[in-house]
Amino acid sequence: MPKILVFSTEKISDPAIDLAGLLKKHYPYTVYTISVPCSSCIKPRWIMHAYEKGFDGVFIAADGSDCSYGESCSDRTAEVVATTHRLMKEKGLKPSQLKMAAICSVCAEPFVKHITSFMKDLSQKEN
């Protein structure tokens, strides 16, 4: 089964992932979460490190417009993704191995939907 690393944010998307568990909304167990203060602080090198170490996909559960650090968060996160995509290309990784979506603090259902479809995509590509 593909392995996914999720970067979540402490105030916004992590509560959503917690809520998914609370509501017993199941998703594959090979999804691991590291939470950070804000999605715009994720370094491309961390993502690249994850691929190097064997993760098949990385999912950024972004703050979106709910970010408490201000409006620039979305743009900054998008930049992180763009930079990472460039690095991925250099390493011959598919852009589809990195996904990002804004997950609000109660968006448990959207999170599970995103992650399951991501998982599906990743496993299809492997075959």
Binding site: I34, V36, S40, C41, H49, F55, R76
Partner: peptide
């Protein structure tokens, strides 16, 4: 918030509690 950390071309700025060593060792473990 750490917004400054990914934009540094020389990796000279870090967020306490979320240093490269911390995050990458977590990734290693996972």
């Amino acid at each position: 918030c750490g917004m400054c950390t990914p934009v540094c071309p020389t990796d000279a700025i870090d967020l306490a509690g979320y240093t490269n060593a911390q995050v990458e060792s977590m990734i290693d473990a996972l």
